[in-house]
Computed example of a mutant assay.
Amino acid sequence: MKRYAISAVILVALPVAAPAQFVSAGPPADILAMPNQTSVVADRRDIRRAIREGLRSGDISRAEARSFKREDAAIGQLGERFAQDGLSLSEEYELQVHTEALRGMVNARRVRGDKP
């Protein structure tokens, strides 16, 4: 009877332990979270340039440009606050999301076609 109990435990444990041995390691989590991430600083510089060009061409009104510049400054302040103790992945991702949202608003306003 004891022999049957031992063999039953071995048979139950085998299917559970075997698959765990064949799992391969994947890429680091930070690569999966933000593939091909660009610098937030460079993105903000491009956005400020797009605001100036939109203002010159008349696609963006002065009030809209002020609003966009305020949002850009807020992103900069947030970045400085995050950078005081080093940027975590989630903080860096948050800055990237805010920057992409601002870029989308500026570009949408510039290509809308009608003048302010």
Results as ranks from 00 to 15, higher is better:
G54Y: 06
I47S: 07
R49F: 10
R45L: 11
R44S: 07
I60W: 01
A63D: 14
I47H: 04
D59T: 14
D59I: 01
I60Y: 04
D46Q: 09
R62T: 09
V40S: 07
R66T: 08
I60Q: 00
G58W: 03
D59H: 09
E53A: 10
A42H: 11
L55P: 04
R44W: 05
A42Y: 06
I47Q: 02
G54K: 00
V41G: 07
I60H: 02
L55S: 00
A63H: 03
R52C: 05
R45Q: 12
A65Q: 00
S67E: 10
R62W: 05
I51L: 05
G58L: 09
I60K: 02
I60N: 03
E64D: 13
I51K: 07
S67Q: 08
R66Q: 11
R66A: 12
F68V: 07
R49W: 04
R52H: 10
L55A: 05
S57A: 12
R49S: 12
A65C: 07
D46G: 07
E53G: 11
D59V: 09
A42P: 08
F68G: 02
R44D: 05
G58E: 11
L55H: 01
I47Y: 00
I51V: 15
G54Q: 00
A42G: 11
D43V: 05
D43T: 11
S67H: 04
S57D: 15
G54A: 10
S61K: 06
R48S: 14
D46F: 07
G54W: 06
R66F: 07
V40T: 14
V40G: 03
I51H: 00
R45W: 06
G54I: 09
V41P: 03
D43Q: 15
R45K: 12
D46N: 10
D59M: 09
G54R: 03
A65K: 01
A63P: 01
S57E: 13
I51Y: 04
S67L: 09
R45E: 11
L55D: 03
R56S: 15
R45S: 10
A42R: 13
R44L: 15
D43M: 15
S57N: 12
R48L: 14
R56Q: 15
G54L: 08
D46S: 09
A65G: 08
I51N: 02
D46W: 02
I60S: 01
R56T: 14
D59E: 15
R48T: 13
S39I: 07
R48Y: 05
F68D: 01
A42L: 14
A50W: 05
V40C: 03
I47M: 08
A65D: 02
V40M: 04
D43P: 04
S57M: 09
G54S: 09
A50R: 02
R44C: 06
E64F: 00
R56L: 15
R62Q: 12
I47A: 06
S39F: 08
I60A: 00
R45I: 13
R56V: 14
S39D: 15
R44N: 07
G58P: 00
L55T: 03
R44E: 10
S39W: 08
R48W: 00
I47R: 06
E53S: 10
F68I: 06
G54E: 05
S67A: 14
I47L: 08
D59C: 05
G58T: 03
